[in-house]
Structure formats: C-alpha cells, structure tokens
Design a protein around this nucleic acid. Sequence first.
DNA 1: CATGTTTCGTCACCCGGTGTCAAATTAAAT
DNA 2: ATTTAATTTGACACCGGGTGACGAAACATG
Lengths: 217, 217
Amino acid sequence: MPVDAQRRSGRPRTSSREEVSEIALRLFVRRGFEQTTLQDVADAVGVSKRTLLRYFPSKNDIVWGAFDEQLQALRARLADADPTRPMMDVLREAVVAFNDYGEAVLPELRDRMTLITSVPALQAHSMLRYADWCAVIAEFVARRLSLEPDHQFPQVIASAALGTAMATYRCWVVDPDLDLLAALDEAFRLLAAGFDAQALGAGRPAHAGSRGASRAR
Amino acid sequence: MPVDAQRRSGRPRTSSREEVSEIALRLFVRRGFEQTTLQDVADAVGVSKRTLLRYFPSKNDIVWGAFDEQLQALRARLADADPTRPMMDVLREAVVAFNDYGEAVLPELRDRMTLITSVPALQAHSMLRYADWCAVIAEFVARRLSLEPDHQFPQVIASAALGTAMATYRCWVVDPDLDLLAALDEAFRLLAAGFDAQALGAGRPAHAGSRGASRAR
DNA sequence: CATGTTTCGTCACCCGGTGTCAAATTAAAT
DNA sequence: ATTTAATTTGACACCGGGTGACGAAACATG
C-alpha cells in the first residue's frame, strides 16, 4: 500500500503508477479512450490487467493522476489563509495557485483535461472526483460564515465555484491561446461580484486580461 | 421509435416507459441501486433484459424519467421571456418554475433525487444529463450578452447556475422540511448578487423565507 | 389467408471490474 | 545456506452492464 515508503521486503514492483498513467494517457490520446481496452494498456505497459486495476481503482481514474495530493495542498492553503482577508479573494487566489503547474507539464495537463471534458464516461466520472474538491471549498466557506459544511450556503457557493472552474477549464481546453490562470482569476472575480452586475453593464468588461502573459500571482 | 405516435401496425408493446421507470424506481429504493440487477427489473416488469435496454439507453437513465421534455419547456420559457427584464431574474424564475411539479409527484421526485445524489454511479451520470441543462442556460445567457454560447462568460454563468441548483437539490433531499422552490429562489438571488457581498454581511440574510409555504410564483 | 410492420426474446459476445489463490521475488531471521 | 515472512504478480473464474444479430410473435391491412 505504501507508494514508496521504505521497502521492507517482498517482490519489487515491475512498474509504477506514473509509468502506467503516462503510457495509458498516450494510448488514450492516440487511439481514443473507449477504443483502448484495459488489455491494450496492460500489454503496452507489460503487466496484466489485474495489476493495472491494483494501481488504479478504475479505468477512468488512470486519466486523473495524483489528484488527491493536490487537494490536500488546497485544503492546507485555505486553512492557513489570513482570516481577515475577504473570503472570495482567498478562494480565488487559492484556486488559481492550485492550477499553477509548471510550463513543462502543461501539455500533459491539456491532454488529461481534453479527455476529461470530451469523453462522456470521463465527463461523468469527473463529478465524483470534483465532489472532493467541492467538499474542501464548502469546508472553507463554512468556517468563514460560521456555518456547518452541509448547510445550504457553503454548498451552494462551493458548487457554484466548481461550475465556474469547470467551465473555465473547458474554455481553456478548446482555446490554446487562453491563459488558464488569468481566465480562472477573471471568472472567480465575476463569481464574487455577482452575475447580475455583469448583465447590467451590457458592454463586456475589460476582457483583454484573459489572454497574454499575466500570471496573476 | 415514436413514443406513442399513432400506432399503425405491428406487435403492440407489452409495457411502457413509465411502467418500467416506476417499477424500477421502487426496486432501487427498496433494495438499493447497485444491488438491483437489470435482470431483477426485467423480471419484475415481466420483460426481457434486452427490451429494458431498448426503452432506456442505460440502467442509469431509468432513474431519470422524461427529463428531455422538461428541458424543452425550459428552453421555450427562456426564449419567450421579456427581453427588457434583468437576465438573472428571468433565469431564476424559469429555474423555479422548471422545478414546480405538483404536490402529488413530489415524493417520487424525492426518491429520484435521493438516488441521484447518493449513488455514486448516478451521481456521475448526472453530469451528462445536466450538461444539456447547462447548454440551455448558456444559450440563453449568450443571447442576452450578445456572445456565442461557447464563450467563456455564458459557460461560466451556466455552470455556476448548475452548481447552485444541484447544491440546493442536495440540501432539499436531506432536509424534508425545506421548501425546494423557496430554496432555489433564494440561492439564485444569491448567485445574482454575488457571493462576496454575502461574506461581507457577516450576519446571514433573511433566511426565514426558505422554509414554509411560499411558493414563489 | 397473405403481407408488411413493429416489438419481443434469445443467444452470443465484449469489456470493465472483483475475488481468489498459487507462484514469484525479495529482505530478514535462523 | 536455509528458512521464514512479506509483498507483488499473473492466471483464472466470475459477475453485471451493454451491443449486435436474428428469428419469432403479434398486430393492421389488403
């Protein structure tokens, strides 16, 4: 069970989670997710189908790399945030930082997200993975509003935030020129301010900021 | 293919979509969704497994009754709305009306939503069904903002609206005393006004309206 | 009765996923 | 060096959801 904790004894692993994930991702992108069977992946990696399903709980989960660890970082960041700062500011900056991978792994991230947003099975499965994300946000909002996480307000705000992030992801996947971080920043500012004000000002606001090199650190 | 278009000739159906949906729902609630196999449902209805999958494209879809027709009504309502009225007002009222089923079918709706929000497979599948819902909202918002439906703003607003509705549903499922329509009304007012203002007024706003008999017509 | 039309059931099949168990491979203890 | 414990692996059987194909059943019409 320990990923790489000090190896005590026993037969060593012939492959790693990362290796499986990488090879599988390549196959999925090339030949399509549904067209690629688990046996194909197993053959490509050089292990049995059974071993594959010991590394990942399902075929869908192979596409999601190490998502849980990222989530822990997000939770920690939200917990350590300055309590005097506005809630939605903290949330926005945390979400942006949460998605600030390096330039190097960006193409891989795009591959993953392209699959997740386009393949129906993965699109559906994403709801389960994002539920954890949502719970982290709800927990933070609940603490700020002195409510319980199950209450309506934290749940609504967290779910709306999730929708905002997902929609932004979808746009980023389609448009290669879009800066993900800047787009997230803009979307969450919109969410904080309310969509009604947006509708009133019929002319669209400063949208120039969503493209280009602004990293929104 | 025609659900009940004038029957010309041929062998008559031994069952209907509604009958299958009702019987299956009862079984799912009683014995659990995953514990109930398609063969069980087929036996209970009195047809073969193959026939079941001709009525519904998948086991998951059985739980969703006629959702598409409701969606058409929502689209029509949004299309016919007064263009001079505020966008988020129209949206809020349409969503509330969309969920205004009669008192009679309310327990059945609760059963469906309880399954959808608690069973992981259905929770995941809901993303696919709600994607259509989301597209309808995005189409409306895009028209109002003179943008294309694929653009970032309509997508973000529609997804945030979806999250808002879903979270409210979840709360309603858990709390039997909650008035679904009033809760939706309140949540969408929050979404329109922005969550930031909410956080600033540390004291919670008039929450008394979310319980009781207000039907928000 | 003959014909076309529509629905139904059966069968075979694929794939994702689980449980089981023995074999393989290593470190550590004797 | 041999045994022992620990760990991973692969093979196998199995289940359930879902699809394709095909013939049979049940109707309306002529």
